[in-house]
Amino acid sequence: MSGTLNLVIGLAMGLNLIALGSSRLPMLIRAMSVQGVLLGVMPLLMESERLDWRIVLVALATMAGKGVLIPGLLRRAMRAANIEREIEPFIGFVPSLLLGALGTITAVALARALPLLPEHAGTLLVPGSLAAILTGFILLIGRTKAISQVCGYLILENGIYLFGLVLIHSTPLLVESGILLDVTVGVFIIGIIVDRIQRAFDSLDTRKLTTLRE
């Protein structure tokens, strides 16, 4: 069981690198949505012996939210804003990839240093989560288009969700569904703001948002 889980987490970590290396926005959104679906599968794999309806519900909601709904919203924002599909980076693609790879190695090393319960020490949950969080930060800082930054934020959020899975036995799922709801609403609001920024500035380049400063 742990083998399959690690495989899925490994795939999600690979998607981090694809997200960092992709030069086109639709590709970045696709990488993020596939990662979302993988995250939805994980609770099912982890709890395959004692599956109950609540876990299935959370898994389905995650897949629908992170895999379909949020990427759909972003694609719509992208089309409505009619922005160029090329991503203009602050941090180039090769440096971001190198940073991402370095981050992944650091994440694995760091996770070894952290005190983990025996049932989590054998899985890639904690390193996978740290790697996704680092990837999210690199995208947040290193991209200029508002939508790419949102993708970065969502990958960061995915990393945190991955960490949350270590608590799946103990935290009531109410909390997890609340979190999922908040994230979805958040992206919905971000989508609206992206639309307004596009209309107000005629661009989604966040480098133009520099009026407010000391």
């Binding site: 947040l140 508002a146 930054q149 971000i190 703001i193 920024i197 500035f201 948002l209 009026t211 407010l212």
Partner: peptide
């Protein structure tokens, strides 16, 4: 536009 800029920074 200034208000949207502020909102964006707040959100991010």
């Amino acid at each position: 536009p200034r208000a949207f800029e502020a909102t964006w920074k707040y959100l991010l």
